[in-house]
């Protein structure tokens, strides 16, 4: 029987929970544990957009801009948040507080526009509500 510890993705998630990202030495260890070249482990990690090989901001802000949310004005929300944080897609603030990502569907298409702050999902957002949430993070 496989334990969840034997499952690569679960192991990687756990490492990320500990460090906030997957440090190089951990990739070296993963390569040994899963008996794969370390380049391959690195390449596998880089495939997934929720896994990071560099430190991110304390809060990862993900805003969905897929079709359904787009029809609910996710673009305006996005512009307001970008403006507030002064960040483009994929950037991290210099104080390491925020990382901003424009993402595809988050599965709350009936409640758009939506924004995730780390694990937490906020739905039916207005610009005002979104900025309030971000303010509370500071």
């Amino acid at each position: 029987m496989k334990k969840s510890n034997d499952i690569f993705l679960e192991t990687v998630h756990n490492i990320q929970q500990t460090y906030g990202y997957i440090p190089e030495r951990e990739i070296n260890q993963l390569a040994e544990k899963f008996d794969q070249p370390r380049a391959k482990i690195y390449g596998a990690i880089k495939f997934y957009s929720m896994l990071y090989t560099e430190p991110t901001g304390k809060y990862i802000i993900r805003i969905c801009d897929s079709l359904s949310c787009h029809l609910k004005d996710s673009h305006d929300l996005l512009l307001a948040v970008q403006d507030y944080l002064g960040l483009e897609d994929g950037e991290t603030s210099s104080d390491q507080l925020f990382t901003l990502e424009i993402v595809e569907c988050l599965g709350h298409c009936g409640e758009g526009p939506v924004m995730m702050v780390n694990d937490k999902m906020y739905t039916e957002l207005t610009k005002g509500k979104a900025l309030e949430i971000l303010q509370d993070c500071k």
Partner: peptide
């Protein structure tokens, strides 16, 4: 029977069954 939870990590294509299998095996989800 035992069941293990695997968390995806942000790749839509893993919804394809063979990609999902690769993903559980620790490979790129192709």
């Amino acid at each position: 029977f035992d069941l293990t939870l695997v968390r995806g990590a942000g790749a839509y294509v893993c919804g394809d069954e063979t990609s999902l299998i690769n993903s559980i095996e620790g490979k790129r989800g192709i």
